[in-house]
């Protein structure tokens, strides 16, 4: 069985800062989307356990997205597919239709994605992919077992955990807690340089017409008036907080 892991490259959520016009610095470092790391780790673990033959990492993104694939390869994936796109091509349905097209051509038994991205944050990719491929969708997965050709998965939901069974092929959306993604070893990084990355372009796919128009970014108007304290002097800041809590009779 082959596994496809679709990853996204995003601006580092810990480093991103917005200016008054809603823009962020072009120099903001890019990282692989956090949830996609759990997806990659689980796919690689499955192959290491002898339950899959090949792990392919796919990224639809701008040229810089090659780094996200390199990281997946350094973690242990076998080969990469980079689909070059411009920023404006990257609506969730377009991306899902490209991933679906690759998934069909490659005859994969499992398709892993992260539950959602830290930038757009729609969480649309996994569900759209399952719909386009007519495959079962299992989201919010925090535990994964593949045994005798059958998957037993735990989903974290409002009720607690749903324990579900499904036979591949299936689309799996990985959530925090599924595993602890490894850091690539030096050996892994060296090995990744020799692994193939196939380059393609968005133009080569039959993608749906764009149906949405995204506006500029702006920040939310506050509804409650907050007292914001700069905490450079920790003791002074703590004193100020305690005074405010005393005024509110909370201490």
């Amino acid at each position: 069985m082959k596994i496809l892991v679709a990853v996204k490259q995003v601006p580092d959520p810990n480093a991103i800062r917005f200016d008054g016009s809603g823009a962020f610095a072009a120099s903001t470092p890019r990282v692989i989307n956090e949830y996609d790391g759990y997806a990659l780790e689980e796919a690689i673990k499955t192959k290491e356990a002898g339950k899959a033959d090949e792990v392919v990492v796919l990224c639809v993104g701008t040229t810089k997205a090659r780094d996200a694939i390199q990281r997946g390869l350094a973690m242990g994936a076998d080969r990469g597919i980079l689909v070059q796109a411009s920023e404006s091509d990257l609506t969730s349905l377009t991306v899902a239709s490209i991933i679906a097209s690759e998934a069909r051509d490659g005859d994969y038994g499992l398709i892993f994605v992260g539950q959602e991205s830290s930038d757009g944050g729609t969480g649309n990719t996994g569900p759209q992919l399952a719909a386009l491929l007519n495959m079962p969708l299992i989201s919010n997965v925090v535990q994964f077992d593949l045994d005798g050709g059958k998957l037993t998965l735990q989903r974290e939901v409002e009720d607690g955990r749903h324990i579900v069974e499904v036979t591949p092929p299936a689309v799996i959306c990985a959530l925090t807690g599924l595993n602890e993604p490894r850091s690539p070893s030096l050996k892994g990084i060296m090995a990744a340089r020799k692994k193939p990355i196939e380059e393609k372009s968005v133009g080569g796919y039959d993608t749906p017409e764009t149906q949405t128009e995204w506006g500029r970014l702006y920040s939310e108007q506050r509804t409650v008036q907050a007292t914001i304290i700069q905490g450079d002097d920790a003791e002074a800041a703590a004193k100020q907080v305690v005074e405010l809590l005393k005024e509110r009779k909370l201490i």
């Binding site: 939310e220 506050r222 509804t223 409650v224 907050a226 007292t227 914001i228 304290i229 700069q230 905490g231 450079d232 920790a234 003791e235 800041a237 703590a238 907080v241 305690v242 405010l244 809590l245």
Partner: peptide, 19 residues
Amino acid sequence: LKLATIGVIGDLNELLPAL
């Protein structure tokens, strides 16, 4: 911070013991 009544911006390792 959009939900905050009081927000303190700084190093948690210093602010938490001080508070």
